[in-house]
Write a protein that binds this DNA or RNA. Structure first.
Lengths: 83, 83
DNA sequence: CAAATATATCGACTTTTCCCGATATATGGA
DNA sequence: TCCATATATCGGGAAAAGTCGATATATTTG
């Protein structure tokens, strides 16, 4: 999912019918691609959010998730320096 | 354990009575510090070895493990480029 | 070769994680 | 307000990971 969110236009073309990608990708799009249930995907995304890897933005009935690139840089540096 | 192995001299002073650190740290030293059973530590180290994060060197009855720094750099770069 | 020491492997049990269906909550539209 | 849609949360069963004791293997020494 994290890799998918690097290129929303390529990985979630279906979202174009309803919205753009300025706030990220909505849960339903991710669920369809993942092939897991709605509850599983929702929970997974909230875990990634709490971990800081993605950010959520509620717009109407939809919740859009997008990557927080800073978290990946921080993780990369953490591995370099601490591990 | 991976962090401990960054500074063997500091984290495993007990090994000096029997050997140096040129090949790494032996299982018994790591076990004592970890506070887990011998079997658990041995299995854990073999997993880390198969994953490429540490290297094993058998010397007599002892198996010494040391970090494979290249694996950590590679992981850091993988996160930067692929994740 | 027998005993002592160090490590590895095996089987079982416990804990954690994964994933689901059911249900609750939130929003938008008739 | 009532219903449809989207997402979140909850409880439980299945799968995986963690840990142990017992035992096997390897090495050194007497």
């Amino acid at each position: 999912m994290l890799e998918w969110l690097k290129e929303p236009e390529i990985n979630f073309p279906g979202q174009l019918e309803h919205a753009g990608f300025e706030h990220g990708v909505c849960v339903g799009q991710i669920q369809a691609k993942a092939g897991l249930t709605q509850s599983t995907v929702s929970e997974y995304l909230s875990i990634l959010q709490r971990a800081g890897f993605i950010e959520a933005k509620r717009v109407g009935q939809w919740t859009y998730y997008k990557r927080n690139e800073g978290a990946f840089e921080a993780l990369s540096k953490l591995i370099q320096s601490n591990l």
